[in-house]
Write a protein that binds this DNA or RNA. Structure first.
Ligand code: MN
Ligand code: MN
Ligand code: MN
Ligand code: MN
Lengths: 223, 223
DNA sequence: TTATTTTTTTAGACAAGTCTAAATATTTTT
DNA sequence: AAAAATATTTAGACTTGTCTAAAAAAATAA
């Protein structure tokens, strides 16, 4: 129905919307698409004709409901495939994104619904991001970033904001993954780094730059 | 590395080679690609420049070893994905081809090797076609078509030559699938149709047109 | 409010892949 | 061996998506 390129534009606009931007400017979208502003202008004019977004010259664009639904479906497919790659095919969380970028464009409703069922209707992908449901609803994250934590907090790692291979490999090297337990020992005021205890065993320090990209929640007391 | 289109051309040429044709003519390839002869001429010139095939104007083309290896890999991916769709995601054998046509172009060596392992290193796809191995070897079929059978033969269905949804649905309606047992009751000389017994239960007649497209082998006596 | 900088759009070009119509080659028939 | 039929290639055009360079609009600074 829609080309890979169109789906990628819509998905990137959606991500920018989800990041809190109402109207997406040409330059911001060009950055996000790793392309030039002139290419973006051409493309958003075409997407506007197809009623996938609203476009005001020199003002930027906003997804229509139609465009949003295409984008959400693409994001859903991306995250389901990432889950499949990690849970079923033993990929590590830093290896899945590139492959999911390809798989998300496969067109088959049955494929996605069967995959969803096979995976047991997962709610979050391997990076802790919510998987949009069939009806288009995306769970809003109840998680907060580790730099908001207080001393003595008992936390559990739920996701990451930075999805780059480098960052994920860095976390993996320390043994940090989704589900890891973190106890905050001390917050260092001078550089905002955090001393913590991982899984009640290893103790180390994480820089503020790292800490800002780790999503956590309080450990739930299971009665 | 290679575009979807290039992979599709190479895969179609390989299929024609496997069908017994040494040199592939422009018109035959155009038919196979559902495109026009002039488009084929353009494309094979490009593939020749890339050393994927040898091309003699007005004479036709032949895959090089490089082209053959790309084509075989694509065919391997196609058949592994078909196997996944049927074995893991509960697709029926007449629903998988279109989706596999898309999935076969996903680029990730790890994806394919992990999928192969997950499926238990299958040797044949859901239509009974051999899955090319990593080294490029394609098992030659030890099967024969049902129209070669003799009266009293005890056979097992191993594959099909016609892969269309219509044909596969037709077989499924009668309950014929890979692994079905067939006993030849009678061969009717006048129309070359066959009366047979399916799985020692149902008895019916299959036309010569149908019978020519079913691959079988003798039932092996397992001691 | 005018001048300068930044952002966005337009103009024109290019690559991939396809098509139709016309020109050549090749094969088959007479 | 020439004529007719068939197969193949060339020429020119079109679509999608991209780019650079230049023009125009908007935002910011003076
Ligand atoms: Mn991803
Ligand atoms: Mn993810
Ligand atoms: Mn197939
Ligand atoms: Mn098959």
């Amino acid at each position: 129905m829609y080309s890979f390129t169109e789906e990628n534009y819509l998905k990137n606009i959606l991500k920018l919307h989800l990041g809190g931007t109402q109207v997406i400017s040409t330059n911001v979208l060009a950055e996000s698409m790793h392309t030039k502003a002139s290419s973006v202008t051409d493309m958003i004019k075409k997407l506007a004709v197809k009623k996938l977004l609203k476009y005001e010259p020199y003002r930027g664009c906003v997804l229509t409901n139609l465009g949003k639904s295409v984008a959400v479906t693409t994001l859903r497919k991306h995250r389901l495939w990432e889950t499949f790659l990690v849970n079923t095919l033993s990929f590590s969380w830093d290896e899945v994104h590139e492959v999911a970028e390809q798989l998300e464009h496969i067109q088959s409703d049955k494929l996605i619904s069967q995959l969803d069922a096979f995976l047991g209707f997962p709610t979050h992908d391997p990076h802790g991001d919510p998987i949009p449901q069939l009806d288009g609803k995306i769970a809003t994250s109840a998680f907060f970033t580790l730099d908001k934590a207080k001393s003595q907090n008992q936390l559990i790692v739920c996701g990451v904001l930075n999805h780059t291979t480098d960052f994920l490999k860095y976390l993996s090297k320390y043994g940090i993954q989704i589900g890891s337990h973190l106890s905050i020992l001390q917050i260092n005021a001078f550089d905002r780094s955090i001393d913590l205890l991982l899984n009640e065993k290893q103790q180390f320090n994480l820089s503020n730059e790292v800490v800002k990209n780790i999503l956590v929640q309080f450990i739930k007391q299971v009665a």
